[in-house]
């Protein structure tokens, strides 16, 4: 393989990885934007999405098979279910804590995260489950680089979801309300915006996007595990910070950028794949030192 082939291959890998990061980072950034909470449970909702998708698919596959149709159906169902779970978590655990000290709500979010991941651990005994699908290995050849249809469809689906979200946030009343609440919750309440309903909607959308990424990742990598949400949660947070936390286009950009950085970064001599995570967290820490507002984030002015 020539250098050009390696680069092209890594570009494809980076785009797929980046799509997953971006989808998860979106939920992080939306929730942070609207209630200034780092939802630690977000990565675990991605994991729950993968498991629910797996469950639905195993029920549906005798009827509609486990190819594209089956995966799409189970993805939609699991996105709705996980979205509702997200709303439920917000109502039970986060809503009562909104006026409490910041430390308390962070610990609450951590507890929710641990309950989700260890709940699945208890159910699955910590085993890896094989997410078997019938997607085939056909694809297109570009020189020496082979890219499967699955890879293309995944990137396409992620792009579609993100465009839909972008249009929703910028072209609908709900989206406008979301952006308004992010700026001033109390003023919105005075203007007659149903703040709690919009917050719930934000959780629904954010978590269902994470769930979609979870199912896609499960189908793509072929196995799921109770701990799969932990590292991606961290990475997605890094992506959100790269793009500028609170910014929706920033999360998409940050996700793709981190995906690409990781897949190219591991090609640098002495940085093998075992150092991949150290590489990303290193980026996170450097970024927080030199540009904590990220690429598209705005500087916050402290007001007394």
């Amino acid at each position: 393989m020539t250098l050009q082939d390696i680069l092209l291959q890594q570009l494809a890998n980076g785009l797929i990885l980046g799509s997953f990061y971006a989808l998860v980072a979106l939920g992080y950034t939306m929730v942070y934007g609207i209630i200034k909470l780092l939802n630690f449970a977000h990565g675990d909702l991605y994991m729950i999405g993968a498991f629910l998708g797996f469950l639905v698919l195993s029920v549906l596959s005798p009827l509609i098979g486990d190819s594209w149709v089956g995966i799409m159906c189970s993805m939609v169902l699991s996105m709705i279910a996980v979205g509702l779970l997200g709303v439920l978590i917000q109502r039970i655990a986060y809503q009562p804590m909104l006026s409490a000290p910041r430390l308390s709500i962070l610990i609450t979010a951590l507890a929710v995260s641990m309950i989700l991941s260890n709940g699945v651990l208890a159910f699955t005994d910590g085993e890896y489950l094989a997410f078997s699908t019938d997607l085939g290995y056909e694809g297109l050849e570009f020189g020496n680089v082979f890219i499967t249809y699955t890879q293309m469809v995944l990137v396409g689906a992620a792009a579609l979801l993100m465009s839909a979200l972008y249009l929703f946030v910028h072209r609908t009343m709900y989206g406008k309300a979301m952006r308004a609440i992010a700026i001033d919750k109390d003023a919105c309440r005075l203007m007659g915006i149903h703040v709690n309903r919009i917050i719930a909607l934000t959780f629904f959308i954010g978590t269902s996007l994470a769930a979609s990424a979870g199912i896609m990742a499960g189908a793509y990598y072929g196995s799921i595990h109770f701990f799969m949400g932990f590292v991606i949660g961290l990475k997605a947070f890094t992506a959100a910070v790269i793009g500028g936390i609170g910014s929706i286009p920033g999360a998409m950009l940050g996700g793709l950028l981190l995906g690409l950085l990781e897949s190219f970064g591991t090609q640098i001599p002495f940085i093998g794949t075992e150092w991949k995570d150290v590489f990303s967290f290193g980026i996170l820490i450097l970024l927080l030192v030199f540009k904590p507002t990220g690429i598209l984030g705005r500087t916050e002015i402290e007001r007394m």
Binding site: R102, D277, I285
Partner: peptide, 25 residues
């Protein structure tokens, strides 16, 4: 040093990352 300048939430996630880095190293 770098993270304590920022909002306290960042410390939580950076320390989480740091814990992983040390383990991976």
């Amino acid at each position: 040093g770098p993270t304590l300048r920022l909002r306290s939430d960042y410390l939580a996630i950076v320390t989480l990352g740091f814990g992983e880095i040390v383990r991976i190293i």
